[in-house]
């Protein structure tokens, strides 16, 4: 099993939204819908406050509750990885996965009616490329790679820097990390 991870440096992210635009262009995401988005949060205690920008998306969980809750197997892991995909032709649009997802990372396509989500650009990963959002980042704050490889950029960053995941307490084993 290959575990892919995304590592995002909140100290160099400027919240420009290029990742969101790159995703929409690469994956032809219709108007009004987004597979990724930027959150602006405040961190620290007054008066020592900082603005934290976070580029958020599907966390491609190791124990993805969306995959286990799907009644038809439309939500599945790509090959032998943690990349979670939706097989569009099998999706009934029952939305059990949306209820199961801790990250609001899934969307219903209108009028097609099936559920769509971030794919970690697996079609690019297959060619050895980074996801579109990572490639487009102007401050190089986003990193993508394999956690199994100790020498990969993501493994090295997680070894060297303080980091967090979102909602780790749900037991989903998320794979989008934020450097603090």
């Amino acid at each position: 099993m290959t575990t892919y991870a995304m590592v995002i440096d909140t100290r160099t992210c400027i919240g420009c939204g290029d990742c969101v635009v790159a995703c929409k262009n690469e994956n032809k995401v219709p108007a009004g819908l987004n597979r990724d988005w930027v959150v602006e949060a405040t961190r620290g205690e007054y008066p020592d406050l900082q603005t934290e920008f976070r580029s958020e998306r599907c966390n491609h969980c190791g124990h993805a509750t969306c995959v286990s809750s799907c009644p038809t197997g439309a939500s599945h892991y790509w090959k032998d990885t943690n990349i979670v995909l939706v097989a569009e032709e099998k999706c009934t649009g029952c939305k059990a996965c949306i209820a199961a997802c801790p990250y609001d990372a899934r969307l219903i396509m209108h009028p097609q009616g099936y559920v769509d989500k971030c794919t970690f650009c697996h079609h690019r990963v297959d060619q050895g490329l980074d996801p579109a959002c990572v490639s487009s980042c102007p401050t190089h704050c986003m990193h993508f790679g394999m956690l199994d490889d100790r020498d990969s950029n993501v493994s090295r960053l997680l070894r060297e820097r303080r980091h967090k995941v979102l909602l780790g307490e749900t037991g989903n084993d998320p794979h989008v990390y934020y450097l603090l």
Partner: peptide
């Protein structure tokens, strides 16, 4: 449940033996 589906035409996927039924994992 049927009217809540985004794709009711694919309801047959939820029929055991005929569709791809994710049993026993999925509560639905």
């Amino acid at each position: 449940v049927v009217v809540d589906l985004g794709r009711p035409d694919r309801f047959w996927h939820l029929i055991p033996f005929i569709g791809r039924f994710n049993f026993p994992q999925s509560m639905l």
